[in-house]
């Protein structure tokens, strides 16, 4: 476990030394890793830090607004690129291609914005498992060694390289970041696009965004899950107001975990599941069914794609 006081002091010093009086840019997602990095850097170098938040149109309901509020004091630059992302994804159903499209688009948007800042350094929230998995050849992480930008930075600063996720959360609390950031559930880089199994459309993204908001509203406070989510897993037959509906099936998932490497489904009370079902089917016209996923990881993963 990390000694947070010592870690914060050292990280601030490290950022000051490495940035060498130059401007530093960070892609702030509102997740705990990048938020902790931004807060550390803000304490270290003040307004030489330029945080940029890209709204991909694949964020959760109200997320962009909330992050703008929380990080407004850091001079957060909010870039609305939702049309770019949604146009590029329209009709795509291959999960790997979705990831690639979002990843590439993100890099182009961020690069465009970063160039304008004339920053010399890139700050990244790379954590320990990212580094070690890349070294071991398990999978390559965008975070390691910098985003694959064509622009040249003098250097990449990664203050969280030695930490695990739960340790980052401890640092977040020690920094006094709001609980909603410190305990923020992991959210995949490709956002809601991987919570629509199969073809991505604007309509499907809207539906899954609404469903996720309801699921979080019911479950987060009552169960404090490591992660909870809803995904559109296909179409099924329903009947609403005497009319047949070939509508979405929403799968609800809620798991506990320490580090995301293994996870077990939460025993959500039946009345809470019924509340989710009733709110989703009554407020989202195109949903016909709601189901609950009881599979641990392994064999399933936490997200659907």
């Amino acid at each position: 476990m990390v000694n947070t006081e010592k870690f914060i002091a050292e990280a601030i010093k490290k950022i000051q030394t490495e940035s060498n009086g130059e401007k530093v840019v960070i892609a702030l997602s509102g997740g705990v890793d990048s938020s902790v990095c931004a807060e550390l850097a803000s304490r270290a170098i003040g307004d030489r830090l330029i945080p940029i938040y890209v709204d991909t149109g694949l964020m959760r309901k109200g997320e962009t607004k909330r992050i703008s509020e929380i990080f407004g004091h850091l001079g957060l630059k909010v870039v609305d690129a939702s049309d770019e992302f949604l146009d590029a994804l329209e009709g795509e159903s291959d999960p790997e291609k979705k990831r690639k499209i979002v990843g590439e688009r993100f890099i182009r948007v961020f690069e465009r914005e970063a160039l304008a800042t004339k920053a010399k350094f890139l700050l990244q929230g790379t954590i320990y498992p990212d580094c070690i998995e890349s070294e071991g050849g398990i999978k390559s992480h965008h975070n390691v060694g910098g985003l694959p930008l064509t622009m040249e930075f003098t250097g990449v600063i990664e203050p969280l390289r030695e930490l695990y996720k739960d340790e980052v959360r401890e640092v977040a609390e020690a920094l006094g970041l709001p609980k909603e950031i410190a305990h923020r559930m992991p959210f995949p880089g490709p956002g809601l696009s991987v919570r629509v199994v199969g073809k991505v459309t604007r309509e499907a993204i809207e539906v899954v965004r609404e469903a996720n908001a309801i699921i979080e509203d019911v479950l987060v406070e009552r169960y404090r899950p490591w992660q909870c989510l809803g995904a559109l897993v296909g179409l099924g037959t329903g009947v609403k107001g005497d009319n047949r509906l070939h509508g979405w099936i929403v799968a609800v998932r809620a798991v506990n975990s320490r580090d995301g490497m293994t996870a077990d489904p939460i025993e959500v009370a039946f009345k809470d599941l019924q509340e989710i079902e009733s709110r989703i089917t009554s407020t989202i016209p195109s949903v016909a069914r709601v189901v609950y996923d009881v599979t641990p990881k392994p064999p399933a993963t936490i997200e659907y794609e």
């Binding site: 070690i132 998995e133 070294e135 071991g136 398990i138 580090d259």
Partner: peptide
């Protein structure tokens, strides 16, 4: 010894949490 399992780095973490010196090798 890293045999490309997804949990290999958690072995290192478990050892680190116990204050046992360890290194991941290819």
């Amino acid at each position: 010894v890293n045999n490309y399992g997804q949990f290999n780095h958690l072995i290192l973490r478990a050892l680190r949490d116990l204050d046992i010196d360890a290194k991941l090798i290819p």
